[in-house]
Nucleic acid binder design. Structure first.
Length: 322
DNA sequence: GTCTA
DNA sequence: TACCATGCGCG
DNA sequence: TAGACCGCGCATGGTA
């Protein structure tokens, strides 16, 4: 094979897209987050099937697929359409609400308000609205400003370049600092939707001021950070740019005390599915696992002190996992 | 919308 | 000013 | 058939 080939598309991708569209409508328009999750779960079950679904018997009994979704799939199989989806698509207001939620910081609640109260029907109308600056908060204005840029994936090579700068500058602030880029990048992805940085330092008391120092340095000295969305003692969320010829990117930086670092590393490397799986295994083995620690659960539900963890391996060992 | 107690 | 509820993004 | 469906840091806006 001469060049890297695009991964073969899932044989049921059209059906999966339909389910995602139904999911989005429930989340953004109906504001039923659990229905959203139900549709997503059904879609992910179907995504695991490696052949084209021919009949309803192919999916009956699959995890997350009950009566209603099965009926919709049946409709899709026989007519190529799903009534409910066609109805949703005919709802202009719903479509407008969905569009609004493309903007970072505009969720279902605010999107509904913009469309229902302000009668705003499109992103363009929002951009040119005379009261735009009163209708949106700081984060949402940033989100609107960078909307198209944030929708672009970040190539792995670009993150690699950022990694060099980040590690160099963070270490320059304090050579006891340790930092890693986690998320899909650490899982080896060829492109990511944002940059997620974890930082730790052996001296707990220093952590909050260190985060502020890191943010200040990367902002004022290097103009690497271009905007701050939020910043507290343990988490920064913002925008960065490797140089002015490149797009603006979403970046998060979190600091953890060293005893929590490896639980955080595991958690923020993900993915979601692995996290859920490990939480369940932990529970089965009599532990409680989260992004901060692993604790033993006593017979009465009492929690032990956080167990010592000095590597990700330690966590797998407690849980007897490979 | 689906699953479970 | 202090506190609280809500919205949002996130692996 | 009622209730769960992950939980947390930060911003914001409301209330006392």
């Amino acid at each position: 094979m001469a060049a890297k080939r695009k991964l073969a598309e899932n044989p049921n991708s059209e059906l999966i897209d339909f389910l995602h569209e139904l999911a989005d409508y429930e989340k953004n328009v109906s504001r039923m987050i659990h229905k959203y999750n139900a549709y997503r779960k059904a879609a992910s079950s179907i995504a695991k099937i490696d052949h084209k679904i021919q009949s309803i018997t192919d999916i009956k009994g699959l995890e997350g697929i009950g009566k209603k979704i099965a009926a919709k799939i049946e409709q899709y199989l026989s007519t190529g359409k799903i009534k409910k989806l066609e109805t949703n698509r005919g709802d202009e207001t719903g479509a407008a609400i969905n569009q609004m939620t493309r903007v970072m910081g505009i969720g279902p609640a605010h999107a509904n308000k913009l469309v229902h109260q302000e009668k705003i029907k499109s992103i363009d109308e929002l951009r040119s609205h005379p009261k735009r600056d009163q209708l949106l908060n700081k984060t949402q204005l940033l989100g609107l400003n960078y909307l198209e840029e944030f929708e672009q994936k970040i190539p792995r090579d670009e993150i690699k370049q950022m990694e060099i700068i980040l590690l160099r500058e963070i270490t320059a602030i304090d050579n006891q600092l340790r930092a890693e880029i986690v998320g899909s990048y650490r899982r080896g992805a060829t492109a990511s939707s944002d940059i997620d940085v974890l930082v730790t330092h052996p001296t707990v008391a220093k952590l909050p001021s260190l985060l502020h120092k890191i943010v200040e340095t990367l902002t004022k000295q290097f103009h690497f950070i271009t905007d701050t969305i939020s910043v507290g003692d343990s988490k920064f969320m913002g925008v960065c740019q490797i140089d002015t010829s490149k797009l603006h990117r979403r970046i998060d930086i979190r600091v953890f005390p060293s005893e929590q670092y490896y639980c955080a590393l595991l958690y923020f490397t993900g993915n979601d599915q692995l996290n859920r799986h490990m939480r369940i295994v932990a529970q089965e083995q009599g532990y409680k696992l989260n992004e901060y620690s692993i604790q033993k659960v006593g017979s009465t539900g009492t929690l032990s002190k956080p167990l010592p963890v000095t590597s990700e391996r330690d966590i797998f060992d407690y849980l007897q996992m490979d």
